[in-house]
Design a binder for these strands. Structure first.
Lengths: 208, 208
DNA sequence: ATCACAGGATAACACTGTTAGAAAATATAC
DNA sequence: GTATATTTTCTAACAGTGTTATCCTGTGAT
């Protein structure tokens, strides 16, 4: 009998709809507007149902989205790695993939880094990002001459890319406006050159 | 009669105590724990009193702290500018002053850039930062050859410094632990060299 | 048809920001 | 000094939040 299977399927569907509803509300009205009750209304269930899927409550729900976000980012970066042969160009493409991820899923990026009013009490963002950014680290490995230097340069790379995204988000231009789109395109060009500059400086310092 | 003066003085004192209480709670338990009622308890007044000093409510209170934060940062940067003769060293010192500001007043930095769960609905963070970062811009002016390039490079500088701070905060190491202090010192050295690399690359691109 | 049980809903608790209206404290006028 | 006016402050309420104990209801098995 496929009764239990049906139930499992249904359970998964409800769980997904909860996560999706949270993201939708966040996208439309910001993370401050995301509440258990509103999610419940969206999925047409009563609030306690959410606690069946996320027993630890809202924090666990956000944590899940954070993890999902890092996983998605990891895939994007991995894919971007194979879009070029030269290592330097690979790093540029990885950086741009990172940037584009933040534009495509701003609500996920916010929950991943506690931006714009969200707060997830997790202690493993660094570990998560090291996982997601491994391809970048592999490339930088070839441009550095010691584990210490690699760590430092990887951190530098991360700070540059995250800084660009973070600062762009902080500007809070009205979403969808033409000015906003121009701005984002300009910033992408900025980032592209910033990464180029970064690579140049790493090679320069490392003596080659 | 000094009655009105006394009242003005008293008013100012209460206003200041409100802001101070908010910062204290944020420092101790994070911005999520900052509530109007808790502030009221701290200053030993009832909640409505806060609305006499900040009629628009909590948002206005946070906005005020944000503005105060940018003003304080501006002063720190200005002071740092005069600690060196060479322009390049000036930029390093400015960057480190920026960094140190974020360590000394993390709660202000968080409210300035909507980090770690705070949210202020303000549209002028960019303008605020251009004001505060003017000394840096003046230095970069001499390293660039067009207003466009200046804007780009200034944005790059900001992204690097803010990225370092932002990423460090995202790690959420237990405050005050020895490991945390070591980490911060290491990161400061990282930032120092990152800025050096940045300067090198700007000069390199701009054709010496 | 009865019983057991799981899924889901209601209602409550302690919080939050905010505001209207009552009370208390102060200043002014006589 | 007493009475009035004004300003300051508090109480209480409203709607919303996260979370949980309790109740109901409908399905599955006997």
């Amino acid at each position: 009998m496929g009764i239990v299977e049906r139930k499992i399927r249904h359970n998964k569907a409800v769980r997904d709809s909860i996560l999706q509803a949270a993201r939708r509300i966040a996208t439309e009205d910001g993370w401050r507007a995301v509440s258990i009750r509103k999610i419940a209304k969206h999925i047409e269930y009563s609030p306690p149902v959410i606690y069946q899927h996320f027993p630890a409550g809202k924090g666990q729900l956000l944590q899940t989205l954070q993890d999902d976000g890092f996983e998605l980012l990891r895939k994007r970066i991995e894919k971007a790695q194979h879009t070029a042969f030269e290592r330097e160009l690979q790093l540029v493409n990885i950086s741009l993939a990172y940037w584009k991820f933040s534009l495509e899923y701003p609500e996920l990026y916010q929950v991943m880094f506690n931006l714009e009013g969200v707060f997830v009490d997790s202690k493993n963002t660094t570990a998560q990002l090291k996982r997601a950014g491994k391809p970048a680290m592999d490339i930088l490995f070839h441009m550095t001459s010691s584990p210490k230097e690699l760590e430092e340069v990887f951190f530098n790379w991360w700070a540059v890319v995250h800084g660009y995204i973070s600062v762009t988000m902080a500007q809070q231009l009205p979403l969808g406006s033409p000015k906003e789109r121009d701005d984002k395109e300009q910033k992408e060009a900025f980032l592209r050159r910033a990464i180029s500059r970064f690579i140049t400086s790493v090679k320069f310092i490392s003596g080659r």
